[in-house]
């Protein structure tokens, strides 16, 4: 109840932001705006309060359920990093992903099943989103690096890091983070396209028109 007010405020604040910046998960940019607001409201409710990333998220349905650190990739992708069925999967605890933790209200066709984030990474990306919306780009960077330490191979974290670096005017690092993200984005064409798009923006910022065009070409190929 107490959280409703900040939640609503944040919805208003986030709603006022440029659409490009506010998608913490790039691939949902095509989704309808009403449901996006709904999703953001959910994000906010999950993590509002002053303590970034330390708030309770919605209780998972099964008491014993376990949250996965990184998104489960679709079964067909060739080489998974922490996939449940890989022989090197470190612990049985990764076997039971709980997707009920991901934000509700996502239209079908928006966020693919393999793009869903959860637990700590989602909380920290959301915190970074709020910091960025409040103009605290250093704080946002710092939260994203915290997320990167927790899930170093999550391309969506690298995407957001690149995005914030670009907002900070560091196009060189923005491109580098996007490229690192690409190396972990195999089998995720929508994300690849977004990363290439970010590379194109970075190159434009650096005055490299030809490179930007090439990156845009790659973005189209990915999709």
């Amino acid at each position: 109840m107490k959280l409703t007010v900040p939640a609503l405020l944040c919805v208003v604040a986030l709603g006022g932001c440029a659409t490009v910046q506010r998608g913490s998960i790039p691939v949902v940019e095509a989704s309808g705006s009403a449901s996006e607001l709904e999703r953001d409201a959910d994000y906010t409710r999950a993590t509002s309060g002053q303590s970034y990333g330390a708030q309770p998220v919605t209780e998972p349905s099964a008491g014993d359920a376990v949250v996965v650190m990184v998104p489960q990739q679709s079964a067909g992708s060739p080489l998974q990093v922490w996939s449940a069925d890989s022989p090197q999967a470190p612990q049985p605890s990764y076997d039971t992903p709980v997707i009920s933790q991901s934000p509700s209200g996502i239209p079908s066709g928006g966020l693919a099943a393999d793009e869903q984030l959860d637990g700590p990474v989602l909380a920290l990306l959301t915190a970074a989103q709020q910091q960025q919306a409040g103009g605290d780009l250093n704080g946002a960077s710092s939260s994203l690096e915290r997320a990167q330490r927790i899930a170093p191979r999550e391309p969506q974290v690298l995407y957001r890091l690149a995005e914030v670096r670009l907002a900070q005017g560091d196009a060189v690092q923005a491109e580098q983070f996007a490229r690192r993200g690409l190396s972990y984005a195999a089998g995720r064409p929508a994300l690849q396209a977004s990363l290439w798009d970010l590379i194109a923006q970075s190159r434009e910022r650096m005055g490299d028109a030809a490179g930007a065009a090439q990156a845009r070409q790659n973005a189209r190929v990915s999709l």
């Binding site: 999950a46 993590t47 990333g53 330390a54 708030q55 309770p56 998220v57 209780e59 998972p60 376990v66 949250v67 470190p90 612990q91 605890s93 637990g119 700590p120 989602l122 909380a123 920290l124 927790i150």
Partner: peptide, 21 residues
């Protein structure tokens, strides 16, 4: 804890926590 991993993180009053430091 289970094995060498954290398998549950809750607030004492109930409700799971995403991350704490």
């Amino acid at each position: 804890f289970s094995g060498n991993h954290v398998v549950g993180l809750d607030q004492a009053g109930g409700g799971s926590l995403a991350v704490a430091r």
